[in-house]
Amino acid sequence: MRYAFFPGCSLETTAWDFDRSVRAVCRTLGITLEDIPDWVCCGSTPAHTSNASLAVALPVMTLQKAKHMGCPVMTACASCYSRLRTANHKVCSDPDERQRAERVTGKPYDGSVEVRHVVDVLVNDFGLDNIRARVKRSLSGVRVASYYGCLLTRPPEIVAFDNPEHPSCMDDLFKAAGAEAVEWPYRTECCGAGLSMTEPDAVNRLGHKLVSMARQAGADCIAVACPLCQLNLDLRQADAAKAYGAVLPTPVLYVTQLLGLALGLSVGELGFNALTVSADSVLQRCEMVVSAGRGGRP
């Protein structure tokens, strides 16, 4: 199994722990990731809200580079995933969009490079049975709220690897790793996403709603697959509690950080020290020695 990896800007900085844990999990499972050389930013929300041409051209630049690699693209960031898939959809369904993208990038592109998300790859390509067979340390005792957020499942005509209103792929993954995936209603509610910088009050309100509901549903941690979901729920958790009412500090882990524990990887290999809300309570639940194996970023 080989994928052209598109890390995206967040995974180089604010979500370096996502980057590290995705690479560690894939390495352990024998999934080969080759970085797309000279990839460029997908443009994210700022591009699609300001310039329709740029919003397609930027992802297309990266997809053109990936085309030479002859394998599907894999992303970890939900926003990159959505922007790359949207660009493919536009290029394939609208000849004018394709012409414009080819004109401004100066290169041909037919929309044929497949784009997959790491959760999709783990659940549907690698397979849950294979994951189950690779579990070295069961996550039994961990009660996790799988938080899918927006762009992993929406809009369904663009992404389509799980149900847009009732997704289950992350829950299935954690169950395969021995954890308890709690039923909770806000799994696809928005965290405020890109409003993090501009409207922090709104983001705190939404974050508080999500974390307190996850706790109410019996979860002791939240798992995410998007750098902005992680940042908004983790870094802003204390502010949200201050503004909207106390909630037990709740660790917010990347899907690959939690899965990595089950695969026998250490907290250092999974970048646990990047978390603002400590995940020691989770480690204790799966009977890992909290102080051992703490590693920093090299």
């Binding site: 929300t45 699609h48 809200t49 957020g149 927006c150 762009l151 929406r154 809009p155 369904p156 847009p164 209103e165 696809t188 928005c190 405020g192 996403a193 890109g194 409003l195």
Partner: peptide, 9 residues
């Protein structure tokens, strides 16, 4: 608008 796509979906 947070571009969460809930409305479009």
């Amino acid at each position: 608008c947070a571009s969460c796509e809930a409305c479009s979906t």
